[in-house]
Nucleic acid binder design. Structure first.
Lengths: 293, 293
DNA sequence: CTCAATCATGAATATTTCTTATAGATAAGG
DNA sequence: CCTTATCTATAAGAAATATTCATGATTGAG
């Protein structure tokens, strides 16, 4: 019944004094406005303005409609602007899921660049998922997932972001510390410190130990910091990304050794719903992520 | 750009789950909604929903539009209801001007009836005017004027409300108190107590004394109560509506005497702008005013 | 695999809105 | 007092917009 046009007409009339002026301001002709309000008056059964000489004067009803116009029109304009900003990828909320510790560490580095590039974007980081990160992505709990695991799904696109190597961390004076690289068999008598998750979710098992049918003693530790401390205190060895390991090497008596002759190479991926591929800020994130080597 | 229809569609979709259901709820066909939102998406350059299997899911933009819809639609509906109430004369603000003391006294009696008859109406009473009450009516400072003076004006309609008589008030033991009525000459040696306004605005002069070329001593008094007290104390005589005078006669040693053989008859009128004649609550006021004899 | 449910699309139709032309009313100026 | 300029209302036709109908595509269930 009351349309945006009516609100605009009443406001333009109040702002411009005469209907003719109001029509110019709205890039319409005067009869257009006359007709519109006439129609509304008929529908509502109330007069909205009255002729007074050659002027129009708002009735009580017209004044009420004017109030409504002044309240609602700015809201509509704001919404339009924000939606346009969404469309151009300047504004919005990016919800990022991270499933692994290296993912989280890596994200911290890239995030600042992203927020500088798109100052009006909000970012939310989610690292607890009811099931898997992929579920979170498909259920729209997150819009982007940083993960090293590629799980084939036709609704999801994976973009490689960052290559790194998993290395073994040993005490400086450990017998393996002199090697450039080791074989799976070298770990047979070691205590392996890992995050407390099933072995099939740890690359050191799936890609290094299991193929060689080696299965050393393990101990689950929840915190990376404590894990590294325990390595320094010779309570075991652990496996972590080389760029993280190198930081610890400078502070503690620990050394890195490659896993296998060619090292254990990994890649972080950005996963997103295929339907979101075209969204600008997601592409921006991926571009920045690839640059930030 | 964003029209009420778009808001209704997004809300109906959110409330009904599927577009087909939403279309039913809006008494439209599904393609109508599809086309509408498609148009808006093109205009704004942002997706508002996505197909997900055979469901639709709102995007961030769609969620924002939904928020806007939930905020604005109720306001529009409320405004429509209120305007309809205005049209039916159930609701609104009645601003009544009163120019004379009897008018004000009379208004007090009728007002309660009016407020009972139209419980949603607000009433404002104005008794100070920059110029005259008629000016106040023509300038839209009031919508209705209660006055005994009819000033011809083609934009104003006068409706008679109430007939009354102006009477002389004298002390019980005054020489004139025994008369049923008096002549202008009888007042020649009296002190006449009046409101402090020009004589040409007092009926006792314009309609009784001046035609007889009689001009007694006068004294201006601002308050009716004090005026009557002074009459009781034999400091003069005064003129007031009989229905007011009778109340004082019961409390004080004063008596009323008619002015001239047939008394000085007066009528209160309701004046309103001709353009407002059709407004229901004004007609209601007049009807109630005439009944309240 | 088939069927039913759901949304998208394009063309045709229906409806609404706008403009043009004109008339009525009014205030200002000669 | 008449004329003119200004402003709004109204009617009819033109233009724009919205809706429907017919259809195709996709998907999930049986």
């Amino acid at each position: 019944m009351i349309e945006r046009a009516h609100l605009k007409i009443i406001q333009a009339l109040a702002d411009n004094g005469t209907l003719t002026e109001a029509a110019n301001a709205l890039f319409l002709t005067q009869p257009a406005l006359s007709h519109q309000i006439r129609y509304l008056e008929k529908k509502l059964g109330v007069a909205l303005w009255q002729r007074e000489g050659r002027q129009l004067r708002l009735t009580q009803g017209g004044e009420l409609l004017l109030q409504t116009a002044r309240q609602l029109l700015p809201v509509l304009e704001k919404t339009e602007q924000t939606l346009q900003a969404y469309g151009e990828g300047r504004q919005g909320m990016l919800r990022i899921g991270v499933e692994c510790h290296p993912c989280h560490e890596w994200l911290k580095g890239i995030l600042a660049n992203f927020l500088v590039a798109l100052p009006d974007m909000d970012v939310d980081i989610v690292n607890k998922f009811q099931f898997s990160g992929l579920e979170g992505l498909l259920n729209h709990h997150v819009d982007l997932l940083v993960t090293p695991d590629v799980v084939r799904n036709k609704a999801v696109i994976y973009e490689p972001l960052f290559d790194y190597e998993l290395v073994l961390l040993v005490p400086d004076d450990h017998s393996l510390s002199v090697n450039e690289s080791i074989f799976a068999e070298d770990l047979i008598n070691e205590t392996l410190l890992t995050f407390p998750v099933p072995h099939d979710r740890l690359d050191i098992f799936t890609q290094f130990l299991l193929p060689a049918l080696i299965s050393p003693k393990t101990k689950g530790i929840a915190s990376l910091d404590i894990m590294v401390q325990m390595v320094a205190l010779k309570r075991g060895v652990t496996v972590l990304p080389s760029w993280l390991a190198n930081e610890y090497c400078q502070q503690l008596p620990v050394t890195t050794v490659s896993l296998g002759k060619h090292g254990l190479q990994k890649t972080l991926f950005a996963a997103m719903r295929e339907s979101n591929m075209a969204i600008n800020y997601l592409q921006t994130f991926i571009t920045l992520g690839k640059q930030a080597v």
